[in-house]
Computed example of a mutant assay.
Amino acid sequence: MPRINLRGVGVALITPFKSDESVDYDALAKLVDYQVQNGIDYLVVLGTTAETPTLTETEKKEIIELVVSKVAGRIPIVLGVGGNNTREVVDKLKDNDFFGIDAILSVTPYYNKPSQEGIYQHYKAIAEASKLPIILYNVPGRTGVNMTAETTLRIANEFRNVVAIKEASGDITQMDEIIKRKPEDFDVISGDDGVTFPLITLGAVGVISVIGNAFPKEFSRMTRLALEGDYQSALTIHHSFSELFKLLFVDGNPAGVKCMLHMMGYIENKLRLPLVPTRITTYEMIRNVLIDLNIKC
């Protein structure tokens, strides 16, 4: 199985919508070009940030086809394939055509709140079904269950096609434990823009980013400087984004980053219910920070 290089910045791509809530494929195509041209290392399609639960199967298929076509092999593409019905995820992995896709990002089962053994068995079934490399995704703030370091390491050691974890537990001690004890060829990726810098200093290889939708060039530079060991230069950029890191999630994701992209002229400020745009107060705070960063809006 071919390896995928996950070092650097992967952007969790949003789904732009028009005012009538239809997918804005023209805006999506322009956004993909914006990402690639500004130096991101790979794209993550149909993740949480894409509002995937609100998309139809036809829309998902069309989004994948558009992104694969626009990227045209220039950078790797990671596809979100997860759920809380293990059999359904396995069937998708066995039956779907993954042309142009380089790896799978699969979130821990949500809502069901399985035990650690249940999480292990879920990923065991996925690993045995997938023809592509798998990136685990631990985000207990959304799923309601934390995958412990012990479970992550058990999976990483037993299944060679499980190549990385996107860690968004918010527990630096847990992330550090995984980094210290992981197999050499298993990568730890930050799942939170705000802890990317400190996590890289501990040994992470990069981030799957939300803010990279709006600032691919700047955030990629910060990440590369940190990976190269130029911590002072990276820290300066990190600090310049500190306020935006907070504002990104005040009203939920991807409301914050869609607000930024709207101000920058890339998309309409539209989400699908149950998500809604940021409050006016948040909107104005984001605008003020962008003006301070000399971003035209």
Rank of each mutant, 00 (worst) to 15 (best):
R7N: 13
G8W: 01
G10R: 00
V11Q: 06
P16F: 06
P16S: 09
P16H: 08
F17H: 03
D24L: 10
K30A: 10
D33E: 14
Y34W: 13
G39M: 05
I40G: 01
I40S: 02
I40Y: 07
D41F: 08
D41S: 13
V44D: 00
V45P: 02
L46W: 04
T48V: 05
E57N: 12
E57A: 05
T58V: 12
K60W: 04
K61S: 15
K70S: 06
V71A: 14
G73S: 07
R74M: 06
P76S: 03
V78I: 13
G82E: 05
G82C: 05
N85V: 14
N85H: 13
N85L: 12
T86S: 11
V89L: 09
V89G: 06
F99Y: 14
I101D: 05
D102F: 00
D102A: 03
A103Q: 06
L105I: 03
S106W: 03
G118Y: 09
I119Q: 01
Q121C: 03
Q121A: 11
H122L: 12
H122A: 09
Y123H: 11
K124E: 15
K124T: 09
I126N: 04
L132W: 10
L132E: 11
L132D: 12
P133Q: 13
N138Y: 01
V139N: 10
G141I: 10
T143H: 11
G144I: 10
I155V: 07
V162A: 05
K166N: 09
I172P: 05
T173G: 05
Q174W: 00
D176C: 11
I178S: 09
R181S: 14
P183W: 09
E184M: 12
S190I: 01
G194W: 09
F197M: 05
I200F: 03
L202D: 10
G206I: 02
I208C: 03
N213C: 09
E218D: 13
F219I: 13
A226M: 02
E228F: 07
E228G: 12
G229I: 05
D230N: 15
A234F: 01
T236K: 15
T236D: 13
I237S: 12
F245I: 01
K246Y: 13
L247E: 02
L248V: 05
V250T: 13
D251P: 02
G252P: 02
G252A: 05
G252N: 03
P254L: 01
P254F: 02
V257N: 00
K258I: 11
K258G: 04
M260E: 07
H262K: 13
Y266R: 13
E268Q: 15
E268C: 14
N269D: 15
N269T: 11
R272S: 07
R272F: 04
L273N: 11
P274Q: 10
P274E: 01
T278S: 07
R279P: 03
I280H: 10
Y283T: 07
V289I: 07
V289F: 01
L290Q: 04
N294Q: 14
K296D: 07
K296W: 02
